[in-house]
Design a protein around this nucleic acid. Sequence first.
DNA 1: CAGTGGTCTAGACCACACT
DNA 2: GTGTGGTCTAGACCACTGC
Lengths: 263, 263
Amino acid sequence: MDRAAGATDLPMPSPTPIAEPSTPSFSPLYQQIKALILQSLQAGEWKPGEPIPSEIELAARYRVSQGTVRKAIDELSAENLVVRRQGKGTFVATHAEQHVQYRFLKLVPDAGDPNTEGPAERTIVDCRRQRASAEVARALALRTGDPVLQVRRVLAYGGVPTILEDLWLPGTPFKGLTAERLTQWHGPMYALFETEFGVRMVRAEEKLRAVLPDAQQARLLDVDTATPLLSVERVAHTYHDTPMELRRGLYRTDTHHYRNELG
Amino acid sequence: MDRAAGATDLPMPSPTPIAEPSTPSFSPLYQQIKALILQSLQAGEWKPGEPIPSEIELAARYRVSQGTVRKAIDELSAENLVVRRQGKGTFVATHAEQHVQYRFLKLVPDAGDPNTEGPAERTIVDCRRQRASAEVARALALRTGDPVLQVRRVLAYGGVPTILEDLWLPGTPFKGLTAERLTQWHGPMYALFETEFGVRMVRAEEKLRAVLPDAQQARLLDVDTATPLLSVERVAHTYHDTPMELRRGLYRTDTHHYRNELG
DNA sequence: CAGTGGTCTAGACCACACT
DNA sequence: GTGTGGTCTAGACCACTGC
């Protein structure tokens, strides 16, 4: 069913937006608008932290009613791609904001709230360019042998090493990322990815397992090899579900736990 | 700011619903409607799986526009308390539905999708009434010594014991729950809670840790005591965030893993 | 004050499911 | 066809922000 309409009547809207790029399929108007906004988001038309145009402006731009734009933004907001602030505007979400910092880190101390714990002490153990193994290539949608960047780091709380992480990043988007850059950066790593490389992590999935560390891992976390650790394998995605990071974490769960909400 | 209004003008709505019970505070109209619907839900006015009144009916009942009811139901739907079905109606959500069965179980097989795995083989190891320890009482918002029901069971997949669970349930709402009832029931345990005891689990939070089993736990899971296991402590809540179940699970993660989505 | 998002209404039409 | 939820519009007013 085509929705094309000769807009002659007044209450008869023209549900076909004049669309800047062309949208292929047919779905509710607000979904099309959402897709268009998403494109602009991905294209970097508005940067993280910046306001996007007001609902009225967007309604005019796409030739739809404000209510339709509203519903599109509602969904983007529900997906944490955008943040609404009454009286001010709608802003591109960012990992740099104080409120939602470390959104993807679910490890919290057993006692006391995560905010009083203070930031982790970070140590970059290793940072090297290399070629993607088959496994890494699959996770990052690359080809085996493509250049990747591997980072290994330790996070400690109150002097106690608690998290050991290995990261793999696709080489091309992260050209220029060095151990020094990582060391000097203060704040969430994903915020650095945004500001320095224009890569915004939007969604991630994790696989959790209980494992024993090998000798090297045990040493870095200051535990013995019989201490069970929480293994967290994460694939983080940017817009359009493009995988952009593989992360393997080992968490000590003697003083912390992984907190999860089930809706 | 009071919203009371003498509805004389036409486009001037009367945002104060005639409200059946009285709603205490002041919030957007649709929030008040949502709260009213929630009350009916909790009171069991409509049972799980049954349709709630149509949007038009509810709009008439509460003296608001359909759009306002719609927004209220939108939120209830987003919170999985209610399920909309186009052309049919809006239904009270239930754990008995095929599609969202085992919504709270995040353990999935490493290979193959969870649906082909088939249902777990369930074994009730223990089921007894006893008095709440301080710890259990705190989790369930009871007093120490209050009657509780404790259940221990093992879930196996393809003959391999994979999950060992201890459950604590408040004694009063679950009066009459026996090992026999549990054994004879086929389907999700939360579905049994709904149909037999009118307790609908709505939300839960979990704390995950990597641990080693004690001798008895190891035996029940057919592993040795050096095998790291995923410990999952869950508190499940019914309406209004009332805790109704404490569950401690031990998951084998050699063939399965705990899958989590980060938005 | 003007501009933004947030709420509410009213009415039209569409898509879907029963009967 | 009737009734349900789903989409879209238009317009009014409210609440918050910042000039």
